[in-house]
């Protein structure tokens, strides 16, 4: 049966792969830039080059993935115009600025063999701002109560910092940050699980039929599907998402912490932990979308 007669499942945002990849990769990339800009690693210059390239690769890979989400990617350049009001526009500008500054920084570093701290600081700051603005794209949406909170930037920023720390081999910081991420994420979930109810939107307020009894969908407007249903009225089993939360936490923080505390982290193990962490982040991002209930679901009988 099509959507009209869905049962007691969670009706949430569609976890589009392009967006999950985008936020995961770019988060890690910009997180790495933050660390490289502030605390450049010592050692041979090719290491700096490789890590800089990884950072740039992740960030631009993420940005490219985000283009896949666009209906008209050829017009993406127009997105740079509305920085006064739009976080998406700001993010675009900041991302380009960051990539530029960081490339300059990395270029100078490789060319001169020494990192330039002022440029690095600027690049770090820009990368940080980029991550914040990515988060703010989501956090600014009142229509998705779970996202509409400081927890969203908190999670995005910690996750970028943690990923960056892991990638750049800042083991101690990484341990603190992954632990922090886990805690913040758990807190964000606790807050977020009640966000929809607290936001005060219901089928009654959505239809203006408050005070007249329980409002139930009898018939959907169309038996066919539509853009809204696909994009924002995605059906997820509740139990499914609970299980994924645990798995995500284990991958994002559990494994890195356990192994990081028990063993000395060399390149091999480090790489594994990065993979574990980033896989965890992918799941977190999947959950970020798949658990985010949009108030428009109310019109289609959600809640």
């Amino acid at each position: 049966m099509a959507r009209p007669y869905v049962g007691a499942a969670l009706i949430a945002m569609h976890p589009a792969p392009s967006l999950i990849v985008f936020t995961t990769l770019s988060g890690a990339g910009f997180g790495l830039m933050i660390w490289l800009g502030l605390a450049p690693m010592d050692g041979e210059i090719w290491v700096a080059a490789v890590f800089s390239l990884i950072a740039l690769g992740l960030a631009s890979g993420g940005l490219l993935a985000s283009l896949a989400h666009l209906g008209r990617p050829e017009r993406a350049w127009k997105a740079l115009s509305q920085w006064r009001s739009s976080w998406l526009s700001r993010e675009g500008i900041l991302a380009i600025l960051t990539v530029g500054l960081f490339s300059l920084y990395a270029g100078l570093w490789v060319a001169s063999g020494r990192p330039a701290p002022i440029v690095g600081g600027l690049a770090s700051a820009a990368a940080f701002a980029t991550v914040v603005s990515t988060a703010m794209i989501y956090a600014s949406l009142k229509s998705i109560p779970r996202w509409h909170s400081p927890w969203t930037p908190a999670v995005f920023v910690t996750s970028a910092l943690a990923g960056g720390a892991l990638l750049s081999g800042q083991v101690l910081a990484a341990l603190f940050l992954t632990a922090g991420l886990a805690l913040i994420q758990v807190a964000a979930w606790r807050w977020g699980d009640g966000a929809f109810a607290r936001a005060g939107s219901s089928r009654s307020t959505a239809t203006g039929l408050a005070g007249r009894g329980e409002v139930r969908q009898l018939e959907p407007p169309h038996t066919g599907s539509n853009y809204l249903l696909r994009e924002m009225v995605h059906v997820v089993g509740r139990r499914h998402s609970r299980r994924l939360r645990v798995i995500a936490l284990v991958l994002v923080a559990g494994l890195p912490l356990t192994f990081g505390l028990l063993f000395t982290v060399g390149h091999g193990l480090g790489a594994l932990l990065v993979v574990s962490h980033l896989t965890g982040v992918v799941i977190l991002r999947w959950l970020f979308f798949a658990e985010a209930e949009h108030v428009v679901g109310l019109y289609y009988g959600a809640r």
């Binding site: 049966m1 099509a2 009209p4 007669y5 407007p221 038996t223 066919g224």
Partner: peptide, 8 residues
Amino acid sequence: RQIHGENP
């Protein structure tokens, strides 16, 4: 038919 493509 997008409005009434099936009937319960």
